[in-house]
């Protein structure tokens, strides 16, 4: 199964109640390397490790084939401060 930006974006948005998700395929199309930015209030009060673990859990199946995965996890508040 080759995953696409659209597929991951939809899944992350849905499962994490994310208000903003950016997915970038950095694999030149083979679907094994992605970078994501997720903005969700589900990250409120969670340290970085817990946030990343949450994302890893959502993508448990996918991460078996995606072997290079970079993630940024922001709360809505943090995202507002950045932009």
């Amino acid at each position: 199964m080759v995953y696409t930006e659209g597929y991951l974006k939809e899944k992350l948005t849905k499962e994490l109640d994310a208000v903003h998700v950016e997915v970038t395929d950095e694999s030149d199309g083979c679907g094994a390397k992605f970078s994501v930015l997720i903005v969700s209030d589900k990250f409120n009060g969670k340290p970085l490790l817990a946030r990343h673990r949450l994302v890893n859990t959502v993508l448990q199946e996918e991460l078996k084939t995606i072997h290079a995965f970079t993630q940024k996890t922001l709360t809505v508040e943090q995202y507002k401060q950045k932009s």
Binding site: L48, L49, H52
Partner: peptide, 11 residues
């Protein structure tokens, strides 16, 4: 366990 590459970079 502290984290992988992303977490280390952000820390």
């Amino acid at each position: 366990f502290v984290g992988g590459c992303d977490i280390m970079l952000q820390m």
